[in-house]
Amino acid sequence: MKTTFRAALREAHREALLKDPRVLLMGEDVGRYGGAYAVSKGLLEEFGPERVRDTPLSESGFVGAGIGAALGGLRPIVEVMTVNFSLLCADQILNNAATLLHMSGGQLNVPVVIRMATGAGRQLAAQHSRSLENWYAHVPGLRVVEPATVEDARGMLWTALQDPDPVLIFENALLYNLEGELAPDAGPVDLDTARVRRPGKDVTLITYGGCLPRALEAAGQLATRGVEAEVIDLRTLRPLDEKTFLQSVRKTKRVVVIDEGWRSGSLAAEVITRIVEGAFYELDAPPARVCSEEVPIPYAREQEQAALPQPAKIVAAVEALVSPHG
């Protein structure tokens, strides 16, 4: 069945609200407006204002309320419009959600799911175009995931709700219109493993979220030039599934990490460090990265596109590694 990333997310919410009476959705404009990205359209009508709650424009307030509801036994899904605004509730997420299990000596679980859009590419300028997944992936006590396929959009939410500890789901806003094939019986998926999205033998491309389609596009172009790239979708940014990507790099001997975050202190940096730690003697070329340029994301379309990882940049990075006669 053909569907979109957005529709798959909505179906995941419906399923959760239907299956578990403890589940509720809260956030800015999730009810009457149907969600800033129309993910929750129709859910207020179907499930009522008790379970689909519009909140005031106060991230710290409603994320804190969600954490409190989780502590009280509910299974809240809190939608923060975008990661840019999550800075206002970072205190709640880092100081409360991520720490309470530890600080209570194991007495308090915080089974909250916090969703937020991320990424650039829609001409929303510097303050609305960030990719800060790496900030949250830095923090013990959180699980951080990012779907990049309709299957994961459909399946990650339910599994996240089963986790007794906080889970952050990042949704790259460029993917909401992504179309894909979804099995009629598609259901929950794991939040532990990376996936090989395209097999190859010459170089490993590691990416996640909104960069997956671009990495796949680059792999297609590389194939026409005789380079077989293996594309890995990390899916879970914390904890990282090292095993899958190390296995791939041991096979291909070369790696390029594609990350919409800025290069300095990026998730790409973490992934490459793990590769150097775990597969140094297998490498046949220096690991490489394609990240966003280190500027506040520009508004002007050409400049914005130039600042982001693109298939052409990925192809160029790979070609610099794969010697012409290799």
Partner: peptide, 11 residues
């Protein structure tokens, strides 16, 4: 060496 910057590769 045939690799990047004349590096010797596995090949």
């Amino acid at each position: 060496g045939s690799g990047p910057n004349g590096a010797i590769t596995l090949g």
